[in-house]
Amino acid sequence: MIYSVRGKLIHTTTSSAVVECAGVGYNCQTTINTLKQIKIGTEVTLYTYLNVREDAMELFGFATATELETFKTLISVSGVGPKAGLAILSQLSPEQVAMAIATDDVKTITRAPGIGKKIAQRIILELKDKLAKAAVSDSGFSAVSGEAAAAVSGNAPKAIEALGVLGYTPADVSPVLATLDSSLPVEQLIAMTLRQMGRQ
């Protein structure tokens, strides 16, 4: 419903940011990582997610579209609500979340306050299952072909798998990865790919 809000940042708390747009202040619950990227008194854009409940409407805002998409991916897991999604993304970047899921790294996910081992395992299980389904779909991993596939080597396959957790197909990211040094660390490849795709 509300894709984004753009305006002057007029107030922040430890978990929210208020953006004034045309005289209306929108209170967006957000992450520590987003709060670090914005400054009171400046014009900001937050990518938003509106959560509608029986007793409340909550607006969540993020500094990058990638962080928003990662948030939506996390809360798609059964038992993982918006508060848990914010907790994880306050502790980890989208790239770190993707890597943790792709490598079955329960310990990294449990670094987030309130996220126990069972929830972390469920996140990994459900999202890796989605990734596996994407791999056999028409838009999944089988979509890599031609020159892009030939250029994917080194750490690039791991980066492709991790980016798949964020919803990107190999067809989306392989051409970009083919232009990068595949010997770079996986997390760096992920970050550089997202930047080049204009999603950060």
Score class of each variant (00 low, 15 high):
residue 119 I to S: 14
residue 18 V to W: 08
residue 134 A to G: 15
residue 66 T to A: 07
residue 44 V to W: 00
residue 96 Q to M: 10
residue 137 S to N: 06
residue 22 A to Y: 07
residue 7 G to P: 00
residue 87 A to T: 08
residue 115 I to K: 13
residue 195 R to S: 14
residue 136 V to P: 04
residue 148 A to K: 05
residue 30 T to N: 03
residue 110 T to K: 15
residue 8 K to F: 00
residue 44 V to L: 02
residue 189 L to K: 03
residue 90 S to V: 00
residue 51 N to S: 13
residue 175 P to N: 07
residue 156 A to M: 10
residue 26 Y to P: 01
residue 38 I to N: 03
residue 100 A to I: 06
residue 98 A to K: 09
residue 128 K to I: 08
residue 83 K to G: 01
residue 178 A to V: 03
residue 143 A to N: 02
residue 38 I to H: 01
residue 50 L to Q: 11
residue 165 V to T: 05
residue 198 G to N: 04
residue 168 Y to C: 00
residue 153 S to Q: 14
residue 153 S to N: 09
residue 60 F to A: 05
residue 137 S to E: 09
residue 58 E to F: 13
residue 16 S to T: 03
residue 72 K to P: 01
residue 120 A to R: 04
residue 128 K to P: 07
residue 93 S to M: 09
residue 128 K to V: 06
residue 75 I to L: 07
residue 11 H to I: 03
residue 112 A to D: 12
residue 165 V to D: 05
residue 108 T to Q: 11
residue 39 K to R: 14
residue 76 S to I: 07
residue 191 A to M: 12
residue 173 V to Y: 08
residue 169 T to P: 10
residue 186 V to Q: 02
residue 21 C to R: 10
residue 12 T to H: 02
residue 53 R to I: 02
residue 113 P to M: 00
residue 178 A to R: 05
residue 25 G to R: 01
residue 143 A to F: 00
residue 12 T to R: 12
residue 125 L to G: 07
residue 33 N to T: 06
residue 172 D to A: 00
residue 155 N to R: 06
residue 26 Y to W: 07
residue 84 A to Y: 10
residue 102 A to S: 11
residue 132 A to T: 15
residue 54 E to H: 04
residue 55 D to Q: 08
residue 42 T to Q: 14
residue 10 I to A: 05
residue 58 E to W: 15
residue 13 T to Y: 01
residue 189 L to M: 10
residue 12 T to G: 03
residue 14 T to Q: 11
residue 140 G to W: 05
residue 40 I to D: 12
residue 87 A to D: 04
residue 125 L to T: 13
residue 158 K to R: 15
residue 70 T to I: 03
residue 57 M to L: 15
residue 40 I to R: 14
residue 56 A to Q: 14
residue 45 T to P: 02
residue 23 G to H: 02
residue 92 L to Y: 09
residue 25 G to L: 01
residue 118 K to V: 05
residue 162 A to Q: 09
residue 50 L to D: 01
residue 186 V to E: 04
residue 129 D to F: 07
residue 187 E to H: 10
residue 20 E to I: 12
residue 53 R to H: 09
residue 192 M to K: 15
residue 118 K to Q: 12
residue 34 T to V: 00
residue 55 D to N: 15
